[in-house]
């Protein structure tokens, strides 16, 4: 990994801006749900902020991502606008999906966020199709599939990686290995030690990185993205991380090892990156300014969402097909 490209100071600051936005947004969602102002199932990405923040540093708005129910971090890292995000979480007409998709189906194609799925593993085949389109188009776009460690055990994973490897598609398969799929540990569900080992079976490089280390994650992602842009084919990245909260909000997470969890939280990657920036000479004021701007943007988006209208029931008939069918 020593040959990995390294983020410069500006890139690291930008990774922090995104990671802090995700962290603060997550904390806000949880507060709003607890206060009863927001009603939605919620799958917290807390602890996994660095992965998409570091990866998105090498993406453009033209690049595609497909993600999963837990993917608010993936979305925010790619630039999902907060007002449309909060409008959607709150089921309002101002949501990107007009309140018809919800937390598990956030979509914003204007910035390449094509699909969020609630079906484990289904981000992979569709991201593969977007990569096929990118290859046909020949403009150097890439397509990222985000998914969990549990999803690596579903058939769609196998079909997608084989097809992408066979066709040398510009795809990056990013497994966010948070060590749990619902209540089951990674070790209890997976026959191999490292998911990156499986890449060999699909004729593509596979790498396991510390997804909570912004430099390692930035480097691994940049290598894979550049490889894809150059037409050299897909990469499987296993990004090691940890899910700070239970599977879904309300989950008492009794099945999680307490010491393991405490250790992961003590090594919280977001404050860790903050400290790294300070150590590198970034001024406290600059960092505080970023955090304040994030907080203000979130607060404004939340208030705007609550003030917006709820959808009219006539929406039930719209967007089922291009033209309403009686």
């Amino acid at each position: 990994m020593s040959n990995y490209p390294k983020p410069d100071r500006a890139a690291l600051v930008e990774i922090y801006r995104r990671a802090d936005l995700i962290k603060q947004n997550d904390e806000k969602v949880i507060r709003e749900i607890k206060a009863g102002r927001l009603v939605t199932p919620y799958y917290s990405p807390r602890g996994q902020e660095i992965i998409p923040s570091a990866l998105s540093a090498s993406l453009t708005d033209e690049d595609y991502i497909c993600t999963i129910y837990r993917g608010t971090h993936d979305m925010l890292a790619k630039g999902f606008p907060l007002p449309e995000l909060w409008g959607e979480l709150a089921g309002r007409v101002t949501g990107s999906c007009k309140g018809k998709g919800g937390t598990m189906h956030l979509t914003y194609p204007a910035k390449g966020m094509m699909v969020t799925t609630g079906i484990v593993g289904s981000s992979l085949p569709i991201a593969t199709g977007l990569a096929w389109a990118a290859q046909l188009e020949g403009k150097g776009r890439v397509s990222v599939a985000y998914f969990g460690d549990g999803a690596a055990n579903i058939g769609a994973f196998h079909e997608s990686l084989n097809m992408a490897g066979l066709w040398k598609l510009p795809a990056i398969f990013v497994c966010q290995n948070n060590l749990y799929s619902e209540h089951t540990t990674f070790a209890d569900s997976t026959a191999v030690e490292r998911l990156s080992q499986r890449a060999a079976g699909y004729g593509m490089p596979g790498v396991t990185v510390d997804g909570n280390d912004p430099e390692a994650m930035f480097g691994a992602a940049k290598m894979a993205i550049e490889r894809a842009r150059a037409g050299e084919g897909p990469t499987l990245i296993e990004a090691l991380t940890y899910r700070f909260n239970g599977h879904v909000m309300g989950d008492a997470d009794r099945y999680m090892d307490k010491a393991e969890k405490a250790e992961a939280i003590a090594a919280d990657p977001v404050p860790r990156l903050r400290q790294r920036l300070l150590d590198a000479g970034v001024a406290e004021d600059e960092i505080a300014g970023i955090e304040r701007a994030n907080a203000e943007a979130i607060a404004a988006a939340v208030e705007a969402a609550y003030a917006a209208d709820l959808p009219d029931v006539a929406e039930l008939k719209r967007d089922v097909f291009a033209h309403e069918i009686a």
Binding site: P125, A127, T128, L130, A156
Partner: peptide, 17 residues
Amino acid sequence: PISEQAILGAAIGASLA
């Protein structure tokens, strides 16, 4: 390949683009 999920995923993804 004989991959019905990937065939339809490829079709869906390409259509989104």
